[in-house]
């Protein structure tokens, strides 16, 4: 049943350019990921991983196929409010933490809640809970430039979790970390899938992580192998 999947993509295609400059970045991608699954998407540079991630993250509109996120048919003919869907259903984690530098740790985590209209005590309680969960409560009032790389990545994970998203998309989250820290991040993501029942898709080149995920999907020349 399609409604049982957190992500259900059918025959997804993405074509850039026309004529001689036409590039098929994705061809007939089929993907069905259940809630609570932790998948890795792997593949060489230029294989279409990031294009797939941007389509699943609702920042790129595919040129073909259909996509359901948390049971909601995204491109069903109506103009989708992609910004709202991103706010409510998707959390992002990146290779670099991409925290907003002029906001404190607490405010960075508060930001997605604020954008979703969650204010006051419930928002503050959620931020406290997440900072405690990720063991960075004592850094709440610092700015990102006052944190170590690992701490910044934890803040980024807290921010991604703030709105209780159904899906977390992680783009090379361990690329700049040593093995121990990379494994720690992956264990944290596993914990998130277990405790928050969120679906996590990790785009990575990092073969050290294969043992930590439920399934590895390999993208090659725009197709899932």
């Amino acid at each position: 049943m399609a409604a049982d999947y957190a992500i259900h993509a059918e025959n997804l295609a993405m074509v850039y350019g026309r004529g001689a400059t036409r590039v098929e970045a994705l061809k007939g991608v089929e993907l069905a990921v259940r809630p609570g699954d932790l998948w890795a998407i792997m593949g060489p540079s230029g294989s279409g991983k990031t294009t797939l991630l941007t389509i699943l993250g609702l920042v790129t509109t595919p040129t073909g196929g259909s996509l359901r996120i948390d049971g909601e048919n995204i491109y069903d003919g109506k103009q989708p409010d992609l910004a709202r869907l991103r706010r409510e259903k998707i959390g992002f984690i990146f290779q670099s933490p991409n925290l907003i530098p002029f906001l404190s740790v607490r405010q960075n985590v508060l930001l997605p809640l604020h954008l979703a209209g969650v204010r006051g005590q419930p928002a503050e309680a959620r931020v406290r809970e997440l900072l405690g969960y990720l063991d960075i409560a004592d850094r709440a009032d610092l700015h990102p430039n006052q944190l170590s790389g690992g701490e910044q990545q934890r803040v980024a994970i807290a921010r991604a979790l703030a709105n209780n998203p159904k899906i977390i998309l992680a783009d090379e989250p361990t690329a700049s970390l040593d093995t121990d820290r990379a494994l720690n991040v992956m264990r944290l993501l596993r914990q998130v899938t277990n405790e928050h029942h969120a679906t996590v898709l990790v785009v990575t080149h990092d073969h050290r992580l294969i043992t930590e995920v439920d399934r590895v999907v390999e993208v090659l020349d725009g197709r899932i192998q």
Partner: peptide, 16 residues
């Protein structure tokens, strides 16, 4: 610009 891109990715409405 990078922060604005991040805000947009997080689903911030254009008005924000």
């Amino acid at each position: 610009l990078h922060d604005i891109a991040m805000l947009k990715l997080l689903g911030a409405p254009s008005g924000v």
